[in-house]
Design a protein around this nucleic acid. Structure first.
Lengths: 135, 135
DNA sequence: CTATCTGAGTTCAAAATTGAGACTCAGATT
DNA sequence: AATCTGAGTCTCAATTTTGAACTCAGATAG
């Protein structure tokens, strides 16, 4: 988990990834949403690309030159569960927060939850979980 | 999620919480494990206490004076899912990492997984999840 | 009673990182 | 030819982080 911590353990990186999950993928849109300094934003985007969490994808808008979009890679999309768990936690435990938010199925609107389950899909109390070395 | 990001979006804070989940709760033990500078460690521990994620608990060892232990609060323990999801991600996507690790039931040893489920406990693809404002 | 040890800090200067804003650059538009 | 725009780079002041040294209080040793 040490390397994972290096990736998530940074304010701007975390916020950039949240933007990415919301579908924002252009430099200037992120900069405006986050009010991040340009140099920091550039730096974090590059790190995320270097670590394979985001990738640059060329795109072209009508009558404009080609530009790069930053989109989540397969690995990056894998962080969805972590973010959802974090959102769920913020919702439940961070008092007096901003907009309360809910995890739902984007198509049916049904409420969803991040949970710990065993091999049969039965829910397990997170307090029972333990990290075990493999092998 | 903005405030949650403020809490997790810091290298040392993240590592301190991981220690706490492993059961490490003494200043000097954390300092040694993490090789964190004293002033930074003190600062982060205080923030975590101020935000109600950790709390100080006095403890006394035989023939020694009373000292403070830093233990997870109820809210802090709520972050377990987030950390497990992150560990699971690191395991799956961070290549060439250190010790590969597995989430298991601490009593039965059965493998566990962090998953997104609907109200009936049926698994749902995280890509279907969306954050919706409540109300 | 004085000296010493230990965990848990505080203080301080040097080094690294961040932030705000100005500047650059390439292609599209007027 | 002049202007606009997205996506940066550059610069430098302000903030944060580091690491090392110092402090403090109570326990223990001599």
């Amino acid at each position: 988990m040490a390397l994972a911590a290096e990736i998530l353990g940074d304010r701007w990186t975390l916020l950039i990834l949240r933007e990415a999950f919301y579908g924002v993928c252009r430099y200037d849109d992120m900069r405006e949403d986050l009010k991040a300094p340009r140099s920091t934003l550039t730096d974090r985007l590059n790190s995320l690309v270097a670590r394979g969490v985001l990738e640059k994808q060329p795109y072209q808008e009508a009558g404009d030159r080609v530009r790069q979009a930053y989109v989540l890679t397969e690995a990056g999309r894998g962080l969805a569960l972590t973010f959802l768990a974090l959102a769920q936690w913020g919702e439940a435990h961070v008092t007096g927060g901003a907009a309360p938010v809910w995890v739902v199925d984007r198509e049916t609107g049904a409420p969803l939850q991040v949970a710990l389950v065993d091999a049969d899909g039965a829910p397990v109390d997170p307090a029972r979980a333990s990290l075990r070395l493999r092998g």
